[in-house]
């Protein structure tokens, strides 16, 4: 009996710790999603006195209708627009640069690549305020230009493509050159199709960065017609701070799309974001 215990207590302790960690991680999601389908008196009544029903979804979708009557649809549409354009432009611009770093030796290549690496060490928040000042000077303040253009060039995405393109066999490229293909053709018809796994990870990264951006759209495009989804959510949280079910509904909508994509392409996303390959 004691032998069994001394052997299995680490396993039980492991499961117990994992369970506590998972509850802490997941409870906020469950409470928010469950509450988005309830009316506010029900949300409050299940919290005090506390009942596990707080984590069971209700059946009332009215909070969702209410937020869309409050212009949330506009924010969703804006965010889809901005994220998709950023994704498309970001893939092309950064993969071109990655291709140049991977396939050419040219004067200044090392120092330029070092510069690219340094740019993703700079947190975007740290330059948001001067960048805002720059947008005012060039007249992009409060426009879609300000929301989209500054985020397109991305050092991390350049790096990901460079690593991939550097691994394509030299012979393949040289054969294509001998056949008379232009560099553009080699890039577009040979290398980009091979780079599909990188494109999935990097595209998801660009999409999610835009979808989840907050400080930049808050200061660079304050007009309500230009609000992106996170800014609209924050507005709900401050303007309608007592209407909890609408905050839950807005949070759910703002969170669900990236979560679905990330869940489907978890491996590509994690390896693009961190360089870690989950097994």
């Amino acid at each position: 009996m004691t032998g069994w215990w001394s052997k299995s207590w680490p396993v039980m302790a492991w499961y117990a710790t994992v369970a506590v960690g998972l509850i802490f991680t997941i409870a906020p999601f469950m409470w928010a999603v469950a509450g988005s389908f309830k009316d506010n008196p029900q949300i409050f009544s299940e919290v005090s006195p506390f009942s596990l029903m707080a984590f069971v979804p209700g059946t009332d979708p009215s909070a969702y209708f209410a937020i869309f009557q409050n212009n949330f649809g506009r924010a969703v549409a804006n965010t889809v627009f901005v994220s998709v354009i950023s994704l498309a432009a970001g893939i092309i611009v950064n993969s071109l640069a990655g291709f140049a770093f991977a396939r050419f030796a040219f004067p200044g290549d090392r120092i330029l690549f070092a510069f690219v690496l340094l740019t993703f060490a700079v947190p975007p928040e740290a330059i948001a305020i001067p960048l805002f000042s720059m947008m005012r000077q060039i007249g992009w303040f409060d426009s879609f230009w300000a929301l989209i253009i500054p985020g397109i060039a991305n050092g991390l995405v350049i790096f990901l493509y460079r690593q991939f393109f550097a691994g394509i066999p030299k012979e393949l490229i040289e054969a294509a050159r001998v056949d008379g293909l232009s560099w553009w053709h080699i890039y577009w018809t040979i290398c980009m199709p091979l780079a599909k796994p990188v494109t999935i990870g990097a595209g998801l990264l660009l999409f999610v960065f835009q979808w989840e951006s907050f400080l930049w759209p808050l200061i660079a495009a304050p007009s309500p017609e230009l609000h992106l989804i996170q800014v609209a959510l924050a507005r709900f949280a401050t303007e309608f701070s007592v209407i909890w079910n609408q905050q839950f509904a807005a949070s759910t909508i703002a969170g669900v799309l990236p979560l679905i994509f990330i869940f489907l392409f978890q491996r590509q996303f994690v390896s693009a974001l961190t360089g870690v390959d989950l097994k």
Binding site: P28, W31, S48, F236, S251, A254, L259, Q266, V270
Partner: peptide, 27 residues
């Protein structure tokens, strides 16, 4: 499951936790 919060934007986490930590009616 532990990785889920990585996919959630910080404003969302902030709004939900703001309600979780509400002194009067928070979870």
């Amino acid at each position: 499951l532990f990785l889920l919060p990585i996919g959630v934007a910080l404003p969302i986490a902030t709004v939900i936790w703001g309600l979780m930590l509400n002194p009067n009616q928070g979870l």
